[in-house]
Design a protein around this nucleic acid. Structure first.
Lengths: 153, 153
DNA sequence: CTGGCGCTTCCCATAATGGGAAGGTCAAGC
DNA sequence: GCTTGACCTTCCCATTATGGGAAGCGCCAG
């Protein structure tokens, strides 16, 4: 079948299928007209990829999983390790997001939310920070000392 | 002060400060040597941005929050709405990630995780969801070119 | 005057996905 | 046979937020 049918059969857009091929995740045969040709086995791989993506695996991990799947002599330990590492990453990220949500919800709770300009949310953002809420995700540095000039002009 | 000091004082990299200027989030004066010049007020804005980013606000939202902050006649209701919308987005995302983690953890629980190839994680990824092509992982005589799709080839 | 650091702009890369243009292919209908 | 329309091809650009690095100039200390 051609790419359009493979897309419909796998739930992955044709655009993405080409992309996956470009980055070496999958390969596809070519017909006489240079059109990509997909077998049922290829579609099965695409479905595998979609399922892995649905579980949040980055494509790099998907590649590893795909290689393991194709390798009959694989060790399930490696698959499990990949999976559990990813579980840890997912949970860390979820926790980080939940912490942000909770902080912000807390701030919003004390905001009137009317047409007056007084707003504790903005005040807090403006600098009254005392706790670090985003340390799990990607923040890297805490409050440094303020006001030390050094303007060499 | 110059950009390096502003970066140190705000916790935002010089690279990002330039970027924020390029996308119209902030502005900076220029000295006679074309170097960017930052006042304490500018640094306060940068800190505001960092705090908002730490709470996961996308830059688009940060821009609106910054505009509200700068506007003394703002309505706190708008700030609160922005905040609560973002809380909802954060929680939705966190929930989605937690669901992935739980699914995957479940799968991993049933995997031996040794050097045998048998692996329920891979089996599930291979299609236990859609259960159409189950035995493609280890055989090559699976349907190669079935003509059951309305493909003009 | 030179060494070294800081600043400038510009290009590239990441991760995953999509939009769209310009053009080739093919099957069907008139 | 020719048109039409769906499908395919490649190539470029955009997104979001961040960083790396190069080439070149500014500025201060020694």
């Amino acid at each position: 079948m051609n790419i359009g049918n493979a897309a419909r059969a796998s739930g992955i857009s044709a655009k993405m299928i080409r992309h996956y091929e470009a980055i070496g995740l999958i390969s596809a045969g070519r017909g006489a007209n240079q059109y990509r040709v997909y077998s049922q086995a290829d579609v099965a791989e695409l479905r595998f990829i979609r399922h892995a993506r649905d579980l949040g695996f980055p494509l790099q991990d998907v590649k590893r999983l795909l290689d393991l799947w194709r390798n009959r002599a694989r060790a399930s330990g490696e698959v499990k390790r990949l999976a559990l590492d990813h579980v840890a990453a997912l949970e860390a990220k979820a926790k980080s997001l939940s912490a942000m949500a909770e902080s912000l919800r807390h701030l919003a709770q004390h905001c009137h939310g009317d047409d007056r300009p007084d707003c504790p949310i903005l005040e807090e953002l403006a600098g009254a920070f005392s706790s670090q809420v985003a340390s799990l995700g990607d923040s890297e540095n805490a409050t440094k000392e303020t006001g030390k000039e050094g303007c060499h002009g």
